[in-house]
Simulated scan of single mutants.
Amino acid sequence: MRLRFNAAENLTLIIVAFALTVVGLRGYLWITGYPQVGGKTLHIAHLLWGGVALFIAALLLVLTTSVRTTRVAALLIGLGWGLFLDEVGKFITKSNDYFYKPAAAIIYIVFLFCAIILFIFRHEDDATKRRAAIRLAHALEVLPDMVRDRLVSRETKMVRETLHGLCEHNDEVVARLAQAMRDYGEAHGVKSHKNPLEMALEATGRVIGRFLRSRWCAWAVVIMLLIRTLHGVLSGGVTLLVKVLPTAQSHTIVQWVAKVTRGGPFQPFGWTWAGMIGVALNLVVLVGLYRTFRGHSYGRKVALAALILSLATVDIADFYYNQFRATAAILTDMLALIYIERHSHRIHRDELLGSDDKDDMTTTEPTMA
Rank of each mutant, 00 (worst) to 15 (best):
T239S: 15
L240Y: 10
L241A: 14
V244A: 07
L245V: 01
L245Q: 03
L245F: 04
P246W: 05
T247Y: 09
T247L: 11
A248N: 09
A248S: 11
Q249V: 11
Q249A: 07
S250L: 04
S250D: 03
T252R: 10
I253K: 02
W256D: 11
K259F: 09
K259E: 12
V260L: 13
T261M: 12
R262P: 01
G263R: 02
G264S: 05
P265R: 00
F266T: 06
F266V: 05
W271C: 03
W273P: 01
W273C: 04
A274D: 10
M276V: 14
M276Y: 11
M276T: 13
I277R: 08
I277P: 01
G278A: 10
G278I: 03
V279M: 12
V279H: 06
A280W: 13
N282I: 04
N282G: 15
L283I: 15
V284E: 08
V287Q: 10
V287L: 15
G288R: 08
G288N: 09
L289V: 08
Y290L: 15
R291C: 09
F293K: 10
R294D: 11
R294H: 14
R294N: 14
G295E: 09
S297H: 12
R300C: 10
R300E: 13
K301H: 14
K301D: 14
A303V: 05
L304H: 13
L304I: 14
A305N: 04
L307K: 01
L307A: 04
I308L: 15
I308Y: 15
S310A: 11
A312Y: 09
T313A: 07
D315R: 09
D315K: 08
I316D: 02
I316R: 07
I316Y: 05
I316N: 06
F319W: 06
F319L: 03
F319P: 00
